[in-house]
Structure formats: structure tokens, C-alpha cells
Design a protein around this nucleic acid. Structure first.
Length: 852
DNA sequence: AAACAA
DNA sequence: TGTTTGC
DNA sequence: GTTTTGC
DNA sequence: AAAACC
């Protein structure tokens, strides 16, 4: 199979025909950034399908990016980058002394001798960069005076400088003591060329042999090898020196734990898999744990530790903080004071340490604080002012475990915890009575009301479980709310929290579907997909007109910058983040300095196109033009294959006045006829000079055939699609209408799949996800752009048996094939979208009602 | 869904 | 098997 | 309490 | 973040 030696060759497409000169690019105009599109769907169509486009991108990028390269940022790499705007009192001293350390082995590691410290005044995030190329380093403490926005100071490594609080951004609270020191071993790291992350972590724990540098620090005027592209700041290294243990319990699930850990590590901190008094600096817990659970859990993870639940007078043991400390700090771009997030739980059991939020009654008084990321800090302060009760100590029988007081038990990434740890994990027995699992999800409530019987009274609005039952128009009476929810969704997505982004999008859909302007929070109190957080946000908007969280997020410099990057064709969340961390802050910088090419070998070509045509591809295609382009392409197609049918999908079909791209779906009643359309069509369009670049995937073709249609066709034959015959091409089209380059997707499918394909490519994305989730959970069917698959549940409660379809699939034979390990069969295909809705038992929604 | 990297 | 991107 | 969240 | 699943 595989065969494809040539496959590889095919993949290397001709270089873009367009000018690649970066210089020519104009910087992105301000306006586009934000969002003209974003959100919504712009992307519209969705579907599944296929794959990868031209150059591949993928993986690696993110990971390797960091270290490798060279480029102007090399100096950064070699230097220890460690920014630290806030050195918590708790960590500095204590750590230095008792820290368990593993010796740093690296022999040739460069050590920082001279460092350059810079405050990023632009973002006011107070990021510091410490760079150096020398070896040997001592304790370095920054002096407050030296840290001023826009100032750069050269610090000797051996010297001790103290950092006081910084005034400008108002927040950095470095230890109040002017002494707050940045422990050299903890704060300065030498990143070697590759793998900085790991090394950094490793180095982090290493105490330098000589804590104090005796070495003379040569302070020769450092040569700040500043890269041409400014802002080579490592973003948000706000957790430097932090070694956190994240307790997965309560609101912190395993998944959330992993997410928090990755964020901590990303921001310069480290994590551990158990609690070690001398190494762990913070214990991150959910704010909903009872005192008993907390004590219990901590005991299980700390072989011998004293943990205090209060802000300590001394800092000998780890601090127990709410997870909000991490998230709020990240959002704010600076490390918030520990005190505001200390879990103050008295043994007084009762007090469930609902931590920060006083008014836990969301029902009536939902202040945005409960879980909304931002405002919390403030809320905390207000709420937990006075009495820090006495410090509470938790003592666990030290014997309990092995004495692992060594770092062996620390793992930077909890991902691969040593087996040994398993023993320390809390034995969470889920002895839930198997009973009560009524599978009757019936309450799916048909679109409207119908169900909800019991307490239907609550809301005057229809309340289905899945938003695909709700008609969502493009414009509605609560745009002021949904715009802000969209902002929060985007923020979550860009920050890597896809689950929250999804939840926020579902809530957005619920609000967008309301028939009239919302005035009373009670009206949405019991609606599905409107949870505590979403309601709190909406309530705040109803009360004050604006969500604090949305506002903070919208003003977050990293977020706005990444939004810009994401507007580049070929640049997704991952690459946007990598670019940001590499120091880029504007698209113009990316155009000017191409050093990233080596870092994203798999995405480089696509990015080149995206950058070169950024302004053109970034502009929306007016409805009229979409139609005209459709006519244009259709003429070519109909000439090649008379009788061909075409539907314009995407946002156009949903009624948007302008779209991000154009989606044209072709079919033909003669099922086999469509088979050869795409290659020929592309060839014609290319010859005509309309298609400038294409990324094509052809479903069931022979290699020879593809080779014949060389040019823009890049395809692969290793796999046979589950339901064959999906030909698609993602092109860059030179519009004869506007003269601008446009993104056009051409999809060709057999008539039997057409309804499903049009449905899928019409979107919106969220509508698709919701519909597919509903189909799977409630009907046991898998919906894709090719058709419906019935999954045979082992329980054998087969509903109507479907006759299967002849379709070949790679691994399985005919009928009883498997999909994701389960037995499946095809549901008889239908010819119209309405029929698909009927099959799914979902009330039909017109395309313009699918703007979810 | 699909392509890659590991 | 896991990551990334895409719709 | 844990898993899933679209394909 | 929310809901389903066990």
C-alpha cells in the first residue's frame, strides 16, 4: 500500500507563483484584526473530510520550534530566559536552602554570567529577559531601580540585586521586601539549543554548586545582540520558580489538571507529581473541596509534609492555592499575589472554602466572580480580607510513604509519572451504585419544549439539550451578549482550552436563539448549556452592559496578537502561539524575519501563501462575488460534465453578506460521472489562470491518473476513504470579479452523498458538531459529510436494521465493517437535506437558521 | 477526517 | 499511538 | 468521581 | 464549562 514513493514527490508543489518577497507585504491593517470574522463560523462549512493540504504541517512545529533554531533569536536560546516579574517571598529563600537537588549534569551547558534584563513596556506585562552567554552564574537579584519599563540593565551574575515592586503596570508585586530575590538557580536557566523546555526544567531544580558566584562578573558592555525583529520576549514567564502540585479532585479533573500543568510549565514553572516539602512551592486545588477532602488528599500525596492552608508567616511549606491563581495570573499576564488565592479553610469543616466567592448563590446573585477567570482576583480580595485565621497545618504521617524526598518524585510533566507514584494517587474508588442510570435520554426534547416536563415552568423558552434543535439566525436581539461570549470563547480557544471554548459556544447559541431581548436572568436559569459560569457572565452583561471577563480578555495583549496571527491562512492556534512565544508581535515582523520557516517546515509553504496574500485572503468575499465565482466555476464544470449540479455552501448559504471563502459542492445524477470531474476541472481552471494554487485530494483514483493531472493536484492514495469518492480541492483563486485572490473550496461527490455533504459544508461548524453529537448519543449513529453510519451497540438493541451500502473500505470487507472498533453499517442514504433532518428526527432548519 | 511524527 | 490542522 | 465534548 | 457517563 503505501506505495508511494512518488507520493512524496507529488507533495512538493511548485513554489508559490506569487511573489514571496516578504518585504512587499503590508502590515496588517489594524482593523482586520480583531475580528471581523472570527468567530462565528466563518468558516463555515465544515465537514470532514480530508486532509492535509499541501505541505503538511503538523506536529513538530510546536515542539521543536522552540529550541532549534537559529535565527536571530539564538541569543535568547543560549541565554537563560527567565522572566520573573514577581518573586514570591515564599519561594526564594526557602528554596535555595533546602532544595533537593539533582545535580545538573550537563557539562557543557553554558551558564549565564552576564544578563540583560529588559522590561517589556509595551505590554506592560513586566516581562524580563535575562540573557547571557557566559558561564557561571550566581545569585541574581534584581534591583527595583533597575527594573523600569523600557529600561535595560546589565546585571552581573554574581551580583545581588533586589527587586522591589514595580509601579507601572500596577501590579507586580515583587516581594515587598526589597530583598525579593531571584534565586539564581531557580530563575536563570541556560537553555540549550534544543529542547529548552526539558532542559530548563531540569536545570531549574539544580542548585548551583556554588550558590554564590565567586566568579568575577565581567560586565563588559554586553552586546545585546538584539534581533532585528524587536520584541524577542519570551512570553509570560510568570511562574518562574514555581513548582506546583496540582491536585486533581473536585472541580479539577484529570484533564483540567493536565491543562493547568501545561500552562504552568509554559509560563516558566514546573510541576510535580507529589508534594515534597522542600521542593513543591504551591499546591493547586479546586476551590470546592471540603476541608476534609483537602486534608485527606494532601496527605495521600505527601509522604511527609506539612502543608499550610494559610498564608504563612514563614515559607517553609507549600502554599495551598486555588486554581484561580493560575488562570487569573495567566490572563493578567502577571503573577498575582498568593495571598489572594490562599485556601482558607478552617477545620471548621462546614466552611466549604468556597473560596473566593462570597455569594455562592448564583441563582439570585451571580456575581461574575465564581468562576469567571478574571474578575476573581478582585473578588477574592474583597471577600477574604480580614481574617486569615491562624495557619492551619496538615500533618500527614510522614512515615507513610517512602521517603521520597528527592526529586525523583518530581516530574516536570505529570504525563509520564513514574509507576511508583501510582501508589500515592488517591484511591478514588468510584463505588457508585450502578443503578440509576436511566438511559432514557429521551428528554432530548424535540426542538421545542416538548419535554422538560417536570420543571418546564422555569423558562419561557424552548429548551432542547442540543443546540442543533434551535434555529439560530445570523442577527438576533441579543447580539450585545453573544459578541462578548464569542470573545471569551475565542480567548479560551487561543489559550488552548478547547473544552471551555466549546462550552462557551454552546451557551452563545442558546442566547442567540432567544426570540427576544433578554432582560431577566431568571429566564435562562434552567436552560441547557447555560451553566453557572455562563449565567454569571450573562448576568453581568445584563446588569452592567459589559462582562469584565470579556473586557479583560479582549484587552489581553497576547490574545489580540494571536488573533492577528490566526488571521493568516495556514496559521492556526498552535502556530500562532509558537510565533508569539518566539517573540513576534505583528504580522509585519513575521514577514520581515523569515527565520520561522525552519521551525515550521511542515507549514512553511502554506504560511508563505498566507503571508504573501494576507490582505487579499483576509478580506471578505462579498455575497455577489461568491455567486459570480460560482457561476464562473460552474461553467467550466458543466462544459466538462454536462448536467453537473452545484450548490454553494458555507457562510454564503447561511446568508452571510460576505464570506471568508467560497465553497462549491458538485455532484451528478450519474453517480460515476462525477469521478473524473475534479482533476479535469482543476486543470482547466489552472490553464485559464484562475487557480493559482491548489491543495487537492482525490478519493478513488489511481496514481497514474493523478500523475497525469500533475499541476496543482497533490494527492495521496494510501487510504481509501471510509465512504469513497470524496474529491476536494482547496484552492487559491484569482477572482476575475474583483481581481483579488480568494480561497475557494471545490468538492465533488457522488449523488448518494450529496445531501450529507451539502449539509456538512453548510455548517455552521457548531451546528455540525451539535448535530453529530446528538446523532451519536441519542441515536447511536455517526454522521459525517459522507452519510450516516449506524453503530451496533453491543447491547444488541438494534433498532431498525439498516441495509447496507456497497462501499469499500480499506480494512473491512463489506457489510459488517468496523469503525473505531465498533461494528457499523450504513444507513440508507437520502437525497435531500430535509430528508437527512427527518432521518435524524430533528426539525428542519433552513440554512440561515444554522448560524450557530 | 487525514497526514505525519514518534 | 499521538499531534496538528482543517472544515 | 470520571469522561466526553465532531469528524 | 457543561453534561454525559459510570
Amino acid at each position: 500500500m503505501s506505495g508511494s514513493p512518488q507520493r512524496r514527490r507529488l507533495r512538493s508543489p511548485p513554489p508559490p507563483l506569487l511573489p514571496r518577497s516578504p518585504q512587499r507585504l503590508r502590515p496588517l491593517s489594524r482593523h482586520d484584526d480583531a475580528d471581523a470574522d472570527d468567530d462565528d463560523d466563518d468558516d463555515d462549512a465544515f465537514m470532514d473530510l480530508d486532509q492535509a493540504e499541501d505541505a503538511d504541517e503538523h506536529g513538530t512545529t510546536a515542539a521543536r520550534s522552540a529550541g532549534t533554531s537559529a535565527t536571530p533569536f539564538a541569543w535568547l536560546r543560549s541565554a537563560g530566559l527567565r522572566s520573573n516579574n514577581n518573586v514570591g517571598p515564599s519561594q526564594s529563600k526557602p528554596r535555595q536552602n533546602g532544595a533537593p537537588l539533582k545535580s545538573l549534569a550537563p557539562q557543557g551547558e553554558p551558564i549565564v554570567k552576564r544578563a540583560r534584563i529588559e522590561v517589556d513596556s509595551q505590554t506592560q506585562s513586566n516581562e524580563l529577559i535575562i540573557a547571557s552567554d557566559e558561564s557561571s552564574l550566581g545569585e541574581i537579584v534584581l534591583d527595583q531601580e533597575d527594573v523600569r519599563p523600557s529600561r535595560t540593565s546589565v546585571v552581573d551574575a554574581g551580583a545581588t540585586v533586589s527587586v522591589g515592586s514595580q509601579s507601572s503596570a500596577g501590579s507586580i508585586t515583587l516581594g515587598e521586601s526589597a530583598e525579593a530575590a531571584i534565586e539564581s538557580s531557580a530563575s536563570l536557566q541556560v537553555l540549550s539549543g534544543d529542547d529548552e523546555q526539558q532542559e530548563a526544567d531540569a536545570l531549574n531544580t539544580v542548585p548551583h554548586t556554588a550558590p554564590v558566584q565567586s566568579e568575577p562578573v565581567d560586565v563588559k558592555p554586553t552586546v545585546d545582540v538584539k534581533p532585528s525583529v524587536a520584541v524577542p520576549v519570551v512570553a509570560h514567564q510568570i511562574f518562574t520558580g514555581v513548582r506546583a502540585f496540582v491536585l486533581a479532585s473536585g472541580t479539577i479533573s484529570q484533564q483540567r489538571k493536565a491543562l493547568l500543568e501545561s500552562k504552568i510549565v509554559h509560563a516558566g514553572g514546573t510541576t510535580s507529581v507529589c508534594i515534597l516539602p522542600q521542593s513543591t512551592t504551591h499546591i493547586i486545588v479546586g476551590s470546592d473541596l471540603s476541608y476534609d477532602r483537602l486534608v485527606n488528599a494532601i496527605a495521600q500525596f505527601s509522604p511527609s509534609t506539612k502543608v499550610k492552608l494559610e498564608v504563612p508567616a514563614s515559607h517553609a511549606a507549600p502554599l495551598v492555592l486555588s486554581a484561580d491563581w493560575v488562570t487569573n495570573s495567566l490572563v493578567r499576564g502577571r503573577r498575582l499575589p498568593d495571598e489572594d488565592f490562599v485556601i482558607r479553610t478552617g477545620p471548621t469543616t462546614s466552611a466549604l472554602s468556597r473560596v473566593p466567592n462570597p455569594s455562592s448563590q448564583e441563582s439570585s446573585t451571580e456575581s461574575a466572580s465564581p468562576h469567571s477567570p478574571l474578575p476573581t482576583a478582585a473578588a477574592c480580595k474583597a471577600a477574604s480580607p480580614a481574617a486569615p485565621s491562624s495557619l492551619e497545618w496538615l500533618e500527614s504521617d510522614s512515615e507513610n510513604g517512602i521517603d521520597l524526598v528527592s526529586d525523583e518524585f518530581d516530574s516536570t510533566s505529570a504525563a509520564h509519572p513514574p509507576a511508583a507514584f501510582t501508589t500515592f494517587r488517591p484511591s478514588r474508588k468510584s463505588e457508585v451504585p450502578p443503578a440509576m442510570r436511566h438511559r432514557e435520554v429521551s428528554s432530548t426534547d424535540d426542538a421545542d419544549s416538548s419535554a422538560e416536563d417536570t420543571n418546564a415552568s422555569a423558562s419561557p423558552f424552548s429548551n432542547p439539550k442540543y443546540v442543533c434543535f434551535l434555529p439560530v439566525p445570523r442577527q438576533h436581539s441579543n447580539m450585545h451578549i453573544t459578541d462578548q461570549l464569542a470573545c471569551i470563547e475565542d480567548f479560551y480557544f487561543l489559550s488552548g482550552d478547547e473544552s471551555r471554548a466549546l462550552a462557551m459556544r454552546r451557551s452563545l447559541c442558546v442566547i442567540a436563539a432567544l426570540p427576544r431581548r433578554l432582560t431577566r436572568i431568571q429566564d435562562i436559569q434552567s436552560l441547557h448549556n447555560m451553566g453557572q459560569s455562563s449565567r454569571a457572565i450573562v448576568k453581568e452583561i445584563l446588569d452592567k452592559g459589559r462582562s469584565t471577563a470579556a473586557t479583560c480578555m479582549a484587552n489581553d495583549p497576547k490574545y489580540t496578537t494571536m488573533l492577528q496571527f490566526r488571521s493568516i491562512y495556514g496559521c492556526g492556534q498552535r502556530i500562532a502561539q509558537a510565533l508569539y512565544e518566539r517573540g513576534y508581535r505583528t504580522i509585519a515582523e513575521i514577514c520581515a524575519d523569515r527565520s520561522w520557516v525552519a521551525d515550521f517546515p511542515l507549514s512553511a509553504e502554506r504560511l508563505e501563501w498566507g503571508l504573501t496574500l494576507h490582505t487579499e485572503l483576509g478580506s471578505q468575499v462579498p455575497r455577489d462575488e461568491v455567486k459570480q465565482l460560482g457561476d464562473c466555476v460552474y461553467k467550466y464544470a458543466n462544459t466538462i460534465l454536462p448536467g453537473v449540479m452545484m450548490t454553494i455552501g458555507g457562510g454564503y448559504r447561511r446568508g452571510k453578506p460576505a464570506s471568508k471563502d467560497c465553497d462549491f459542492i458538485f455532484t451528478h445524477n450519474d453517480s460515476d460521472a462525477i469521478e473524473f470531474l475534479l482533476p479535469q476541472l482543476l486543470l482547466q481552471l489552472q490553464v485559464a489562470g484562475l487557480v493559482v494554487h491548489a491543495n487537492t485530494q482525490v478519493g478513488h483514483n489511481t496514481p497514474e491518473r493523478i500523475i497525469n493531472y500533475h499541476y496543482p493536484i497533490i494527492s495521496d492514495f494510501t487510504h481509501r476513504p471510509l465512504l469513497d469518492c470524496t474529491d476536494r480541492s482547496f484552492t487559491i483563486f484569482k477572482s476575475p470579479v474583483s481581481g483579488l485572490h480568494r480561497r475557494i473550496d471545490i468538492i465533488c461527490v457522488p449523488r448518494t452523498q450529496y445531501a450529507y455533504t451539502v449539509l456538512a459544508w453548510t455548517g455552521s461548524k457548531q451546528f455540525n458538531r451539535s448535530l453529530r453529537l446528538y446523532a451519536e448519543r441519542e441515536l447511536g449513529w455517526t454522521l459525517s459529510s459522507h452519510g450516516l453510519l449506524q453503530i451496533y451497540s453491543e447491547s444488541g438493541d438494534s433498532e431498525q436494521q439498516q441495509q447496507q451500502h456497497q462501499h469499500h473500505q480499506q480494512k473491512s470487507e463489506q457489510l459488517g465493517r468496523t469503525h473505531n472498533g465498533k461494528q457499523v453499517s450504513f444507513v440508507p442514504p437520502v437525497l435531500t437535506e430535509r430528508q437527512v433532518f427527518a432521518q435524524l428526527k430533528v426539525p428542519y432548519l433552513e440554512p440561515w437558521q444554522r448560524n450557530h
